[in-house]
Amino acid sequence: MKPVFEYTQGMRDKETHYCPGCSHGVAHRLIMEVLVERGELGKAIGVSPVGCSITAHQYLNVDMIESPHGRAPAVAAGIKRVHPKAQVFTYQGDGDLASIGGNEILHSAERGEKICTFFINNAIYGMTGGQMAPTTLIGQKATTCPYGRDLDNYGLPMKMAEIVSCMDLAVYVERVALNTPANIRKAKQAINRAFEVQKLGLGYAFVEILSACPTNWGLQPAKAMEWVTRNMIPYFPLGQLCCPEEVK
């Protein structure tokens, strides 16, 4: 009998520590499925961030290193210089990438580092317990903005995909979401394009992945998915900001 569905060999046989309804599991699996389908699992090297996914190496079946907070793109660039044919990627959350690591992400994009970044934007700090992130929405409550994020104090949430896309050598920038099966399929295509961009040596590839954090949002998993649809996507519009002809 031909199996119609199998557990990807890109994931290790280990139950994750993520909360029910968290998008990390889906994002992990999409990246690993893409690498397996591309036949590149053995040449991939991942850099995990400070945040809930710091120990992603427990689950992702590729060589991995944990980065100091925010520095994943510089760590990845160091690795890529040593192993230019490897598929090197960073996996970063919003506090890691948009706040403390803002400088590294911009400079890696501007240098056109031939790496991929998968940016998990769930509009909140997860591991530290629900503090405000640079991507927390106006009015959204967090433990460090218990009355809701206000414009006067903190300004507007950062649209990282748009910011990164201003860098000319960030040749592929797309924002996707993991809120519906259709969007999950699109996310997988985006991840594949990012690795293809790296393989062809075209420049820096950045995929922002809108994700749910039911625990820190105080929502049931299904409601959290609706929250992505209703609140995040209108502010963080989905779609490609730039894409080279070669991978369209």
């Binding site: 090297i45 850099v47 290193i65 980065s67 100091p68 925010g70 520095r71 510089a74 760590v75 990845a76 660039a77 160091g78 690795i79 210089r81 040593v82 192993h83 400088n103 590294e104 400079h107 240098r111």
Partner: peptide, 26 residues
């Protein structure tokens, strides 16, 4: 060899962390 002028000392040592982890003399 490879030279990169990093964006900060935070980045310099992170490049080192990555290159050393990748097995290079850096």
């Amino acid at each position: 060899g490879h030279f990169i002028q990093a964006e900060s000392e935070l980045a310099s040592i992170s490049f080192i962390y990555g290159a050393a982890a990748a097995g290079a003399r850096c």
